[in-house]
């Protein structure tokens, strides 16, 4: 469908990649609502995926008591909702992640504070 308008109606998208310091990556931690919503972080597409685990996630979620207990080899990853196995040594781009990609991770056995997914 298209916008109905009295004149041609076309405007550039506001959030294209060149406007940001690096492409945006959105990340959600399943069963953990303390930080309410998926996070939004700029991460260079050449950075190895390991950077997400070593740097991005500890900065975002390190405050959470469950975070230190994560067993990273058991973590389940999802890309746009589909199960996916990132290669930590390869870049974000090689792992199929581009500007505004969304990934989620599930940490089996960890279901947040008080069993309330917090």
């Amino acid at each position: 469908m298209a916008v109905k308008a009295v004149k041609p109606y076309r405007f550039p998208p506001r959030d294209t990649v060149e406007k940001f310091p690096a492409p945006l990556l959105f990340i959600g931690w399943e069963d953990h609502f303390m930080f309410v919503a998926p996070i939004c972080v700029p991460v260079p597409s050449e950075a190895p995926f390991q950077v997400v685990i070593d740097k991005v996630l500890p900065e975002a979620y390190g405050q959470h008591p469950d975070f230190a207990r994560i067993e990273w080899d058991k973590v389940e990853w999802f890309r746009s909702g589909e199960p996916f196995r990132p290669d930590p040594a390869k870049s974000l781009k090689e792992n199929g992640l581009g500007h505004k990609s969304v990934i989620r991770f599930r940490t089996p056995g960890l279901e947040g504070i008080g069993g309330a997914y917090f």
């Binding site: 930080f35 309410v36 919503a37 939004c40 972080v41 008080g114 309330a116 997914y117």
Partner: peptide, 29 residues
């Protein structure tokens, strides 16, 4: 009681301990 009370109680506990939970992440909108 199932989802929200435990979350609020945790926030209260942290606030009382002088470290209120502050989210410094930018969220996906």
């Amino acid at each position: 009681d199932k989802y929200y009370r435990p979350r609020l109680l945790y926030l209260r506990e942290q606030e009382k301990a002088g470290k209120p939970v502050a989210n410094k992440n930018l969220p996906l909108l």
